[in-house]
Simulated scan of single mutants.
Amino acid sequence: MKTLEHPGSKKILEVRPGNNKFIHSLIKYKYFHLMALPCLLYFLVFKYLPMYGVIIAFKDYEPTGGFWGILKSEWVGLQNFKMFFTSIYFGRLMKNTLLISFYRLLFGFPAPILLAILINEIKNVFFKKTVQTITYMPHFLSWVVVSGFLTILLSTTGGPVNALLERAGIEPIVFIADKSFFRSLLVLSDIWKGIGWGTIIYLAALTNVNPELYEASMMDGASKFRQVWHISLPGIKEIIAIMLILAVGRILDENFEQIFNLYSPAVYEVADVFETYVYRQGLVEAKFSYSAAVGLFKSVVSLIMVILSNAAAKKLGSDGIW
């Protein structure tokens, strides 16, 4: 048995040898633990405790029974999952979610990397900070505001985009209600809103690249493209791998706010994804057990995607996220 004095007080703590290091670390970094406490409480209250409600996916839950009615509800096993897998919506939701996510990965994921490299090459500090500020400002706009802005911009009655099309002799296009343009509109608006914010972490990673490498490459006659390809990108490959793993993990976790504020029944066929479907089934039609089964299926697939993408990243030489 050993004793440990609490810093700033005369209180003596008796600790066992096996717990000595743990308690000493806990006391030494107590302020850091207090700073992390709100974050831990957030995940505990809003992420872990609600997992208890997942059991309604395997029950015929009646909301009239209240919270404790979950225990009294009848078990139905995998019936809710079978209903979903055999419905006409399963194929449509999978197709829309995977296609929209694939387009976002293909075009949206490299966009902040490219912008970060371009900003990193700017030598004028004032101009560099101005570009950074302008590009990440849209991140602070809600999708309600952005969707309203897009509706006005693409309107067939006075919208500047359709006004230019009319001048070019092209009939006005209802972009937001047109199945041919809606997915492209989602991807482009998502890139515009998030590209500046996404560059922050890559710019931070680029500051850790040794500048002597650039100087040596310039002396060897390397072009800017060669410097980016052989120095900048390899210098931030670990960060790119981690962000890609997280992006793949969110492949079924679409931006509900964006789609919800932009879509309409006219584009359900190409825009309806898991989250919008769960919202309609769970909150609008009050099918709580069924919507919980759909949400649980989506979460399990997302977890599998994270595990597989992390394993693939390790195979390619990255450290991954665990």
Results as ranks from 00 to 15, higher is better:
I170G: 02
I170W: 10
E171I: 06
P172K: 10
P172V: 07
I173E: 05
V174K: 12
F175W: 14
I176Y: 02
A177D: 15
A177F: 10
A177P: 00
D178F: 09
D178Y: 06
K179W: 01
S180G: 08
F181Y: 15
F181D: 02
F182S: 04
S184D: 07
S184W: 15
S184N: 13
S189I: 12
D190H: 07
I191Q: 04
I191M: 08
I195W: 01
G198H: 00
T199A: 15
T199F: 02
I200M: 12
I200D: 03
I201N: 07
I201M: 15
L203D: 01
L203N: 01
A204R: 00
A204F: 01
A205I: 03
N208I: 02
N208G: 11
N208H: 10
V209E: 03
V209T: 06
N210M: 08
P211L: 11
P211Q: 10
A216N: 11
S217Q: 07
S217I: 06
S217M: 12
M218D: 15
D220Y: 06
G221P: 14
S223C: 09
S223T: 15
K224N: 12
K224P: 05
F225P: 01
F225S: 05
R226T: 08
R226N: 11
Q227H: 05
W229N: 09
W229P: 00
W229A: 12
H230K: 11
H230W: 11
H230D: 11
S232L: 08
S232A: 13
L233H: 03
P234G: 10
P234W: 07
G235V: 09
K237V: 09
K237W: 02
K237R: 14
E238M: 08
A241T: 07
I242N: 00
I242K: 05
L244A: 14
I245V: 15
I245Y: 09
L246Y: 03
A247F: 03
A247E: 15
A247Y: 05
